[in-house]
Design a binder for these strands. Structure first.
Lengths: 233, 233
DNA sequence: TCAAAAGTGTTCACTGTACACCCATGG
DNA sequence: CCATGGGTGTACAGTGAACACTTTTGA
């Protein structure tokens, strides 16, 4: 490669975009921000951050998780979506956004933590207009999650350690954007043998009727992951 | 963004990588090259090309199709896989490879054309060691094609206008990397109503027994594509 | 006593899969 | 006459989808 070519081609910026899905037991939400700098000051965006040439995109995603919701945990489920590469995405120059999505269990603390840092949690089905091509990125992320949820038990990343079947079903309904039959859902979940009764129940003060709590069988999950796909909805 | 930041971040090169799948009626193949320049002179690679900051990645893919196999056709099926972004992919600097795959119907002419231009067609299941992370890219592409083939009738992009059921089945077997039952396959294909008997048959000189030729019902295909997924294998 | 959510089985249609033989033709 | 590949139907199991009532308990 000639020096001229080097100057021509090594002239692109790289950034990581993050579609952060959070589930609070009832609602599936996505974290967005109001931009505080140019370009598009004041517009809404998903979390995005430039990547220095000697830093990995995945590292920047971890940094964003730490900065945006205060989570410093390597076990958060993160997966690349694809690159968004349109020429005129950004007025500063050619910026390639390599988009990722991540799944987190929301607690009131995490929600507040993100809001303290100027984040906004918006419902999965009520995404406002965003800057750049970020709406397109979110659509792509939602499709990916729909597909993953149908095939792999990634839903467990979004739930607390112990959860009720109703919470699990609610999550699947939100992610797939359709109602599921309660009896069929339970049959399917129990047949998968991926969840185990913990023996605990919900706090009687919180609900009208106590519900059994379950946890996820990690061993079975590992085997299933290795084998490939299963767990269809 | 400060000028210092601009200098720091706008320092990455962008390239399009292409996993080109071709089917000749019997074998599913991938096109690779022997590299003629540094770095890794002499190593095998998939077609890749730097993208100038004012050019779209998709455009570069079209250019590669033209340069590598002499096909100048906007109807070739092309889809982005994802970005391959490791920091030390390339000794010249940070190069982000946005990988695509494309599907083409191979004729002896196209195969020879590509070979004239130094291309090598390797069988889907006999991929040699490649430079950079190109083996990883091909693995990812194969997984994507497997999934797509199961869900959408993209197989038709790899076949000539008129084809036999045996050719179609052979393609599916190669792509999915397993044998399929002849009767079940025919049942499934005919039930999908996606193919139409043309009334023509194969040339009696070519085969021991003539076989009916079919074509693909584009109208039904459009409807099916819009509706979403179907056509499971 | 009523509203709200937990929990529980059966039936039917469809789809995937396993499986074997006859026919036409060229060598 | 035989090797090759085209073409055809049935039976069984498993899964998806539709569907309604009882129980518990807090308000």
């Amino acid at each position: 490669m000639t020096p001229q070519e080097k100057e021509l081609y090594f002239n692109v910026a790289l950034c990581s975009g993050l579609v952060l899905f959070g589930f609070d037991g009832e609602e599936l939400k996505i974290l967005i921000y109001r931009k505080k700098d140019d370009p598009y000051r004041g517009a809404l965006t998903i979390p995005s951050k430039y990547v220095a040439p000697d830093t990995s995109n995945e590292c920047v995603v971890q940094t964003m998780l730490k900065e945006n919701i205060g989570i410093d945990d390597k076990n958060i489920y993160v997966e690349q979506l694809k690159a968004f590469v349109k020429v005129f995405r950004n007025p500063l120059g050619r910026v390639v956004n390599v988009a990722y999505y991540a799944l987190v269990k929301l607690t009131p603390e995490i929600e507040k933590e993100a809001e303290k840092r100027n984040g906004l949690w918006v419902k999965y089905n009520e995404i406002p207009d965003l800057a750049f091509d970020h709406n397109e990125i979110i659509s792509y992320a939602k499709e990916r999650v729909k597909r993953r949820v149908k095939r792999r038990p990634i839903g467990f990343h979004l739930l607390p350690k112990e959860f009720t079947i109703a919470q699990l079903q609610s999550l699947y309904e939100k992610a797939l954007d359709r109602e599921l039959d309660k009896r069929n859902f339970r049959k399917k979940i129990f047949n998968s043998n991926l969840i185990i009764e913990t023996g605990n129940t919900t706090d009687p003060k919180e609900y009208r009727k106590v519900a059994k709590l379950y946890r996820f069988d990690e061993e079975k999950f590992e085997k299933l992951s290795l084998k490939g796909y299963d767990f269809l909805f």
